[in-house]
């Protein structure tokens, strides 16, 4: 009876996810414009990455998202978790800050971009505070920072929700025991809260790696043109898409696939690393 239950799902999963992954790996070793012949190129696509400035920028931007925004999201989520543990209106705040992560990236990207427009709300506010010469938020040098800030805003809610649920499961008497032993707030966090949430934290880090690597539409729509934005703000997902469907020039399916493979490898390496570095014996309580 096992087979008829599992087979349909497995077949569709194989056709849509597994087989294309394997075929992508093959394409990544070729030069291919989609139509016409495929020429074997060995590691040429991978070798070209390092010398392509657009790729390097996209890679660096992806790393900023993964580590920079990742660290910020976790610090803020932990702070909010600790804070909301005993605060009036916690359920309400949790519900509200979670909502942006459900809204399509296209929509929040457009709104976030509009806030920082030259005539946008942010400038109206700081103009009212007496700043007459606001920085060009969407200029080359600032735009990506604003995007990172937006990504952070979007994701904080999800991690706060997950961490809060974990914190809620910690029995109260452990804190009482810590108080009786004269623990400071920091010690209670360090020796009671953190060890008991460790497992959930590592799940969150894995989830973040996967989510951060696939961010696409938020950046795509940010500049409000509807087409591909300035190359300076691309990440690997945008780079891969632009290689396959360029606005001008021939499609480079090989390079697009190679970039996809790189994203996959990054996701797996970081997942394994996160699980391994954060490996602890599960604490039963």
């Amino acid at each position: 009876m096992f087979v008829p239950f599992v087979a349909p799902a497995l077949i569709v999963f194989t056709l849509i996810v597994l087989a294309p992954t394997v075929f992508s790996l093959w394409v990544s070793f070729n030069e291919w414009a989609g139509a016409g012949p495929m020429t074997f190129a060995g590691f040429a696509n991978y070798a070209r990455m390092a010398s392509d400035p657009v790729f390097v920028t996209s890679f660096v931007n992806t790393m900023w998202t993964l580590f920079g925004v990742g660290a910020a999201v976790f610090v803020v989520s932990f702070a909010l978790t600790m804070l909301l543990q005993n605060m009036l209106g916690r359920k309400f705040i949790r519900l509200v800050i979670f909502f942006p992560s459900l809204v399509p990236g296209v929509v929040v990207g457009i709104l976030w971009g509009f806030l920082f427009n030259a005539d946008g709300l942010v400038n109206t506010v700081i103009g009212g505070l007496g700043v007459d010469d606001p920085p060009g938020w969407l200029s080359q040098e600032h735009m990506f920072k604003i995007i990172l800030l937006g990504i952070m805003w979007l994701h904080t809610g999800v991690y706060t929700v997950i961490l809060m649920a974990a914190a809620d499961r910690i029995p109260r008497d452990l804190y009482e025991a810590a108080d009786l032993a004269g623990a400071t707030p920091w010690q209670r966090f360090r020796y009671v809260t953190l060890p008991l949430m460790w497992d959930v934290v590592s799940v969150c880090i894995v989830l973040w790696c996967v989510q951060a690597l696939k961010i696409f539409e938020f950046i795509l729509v940010f500049t409000g043109t509807g087409g591909l934005p300035d190359r300076g703000v691309w990440n690997l997902a945008l780079f891969s898409y632009a290689e396959a469907f360029p606005t001008d020039g021939t499609p480079a399916f090989g390079m697009a696939a190679a970039t996809g493979m790189l994203i996959l490898v990054l996701a797996m390496v970081f997942t394994v690393l996160a699980r391994w570095v954060l490996r602890r014996d599960d604490v039963q309580y």
């Binding site: 294309p20 992508s24 997902a237 898409y241």
Partner: peptide
């Protein structure tokens, strides 16, 4: 963990 970019081509 399989991103869209690894399967779209």
């Amino acid at each position: 963990g399989v991103p869209a970019q690894a399967i779209f081509i």
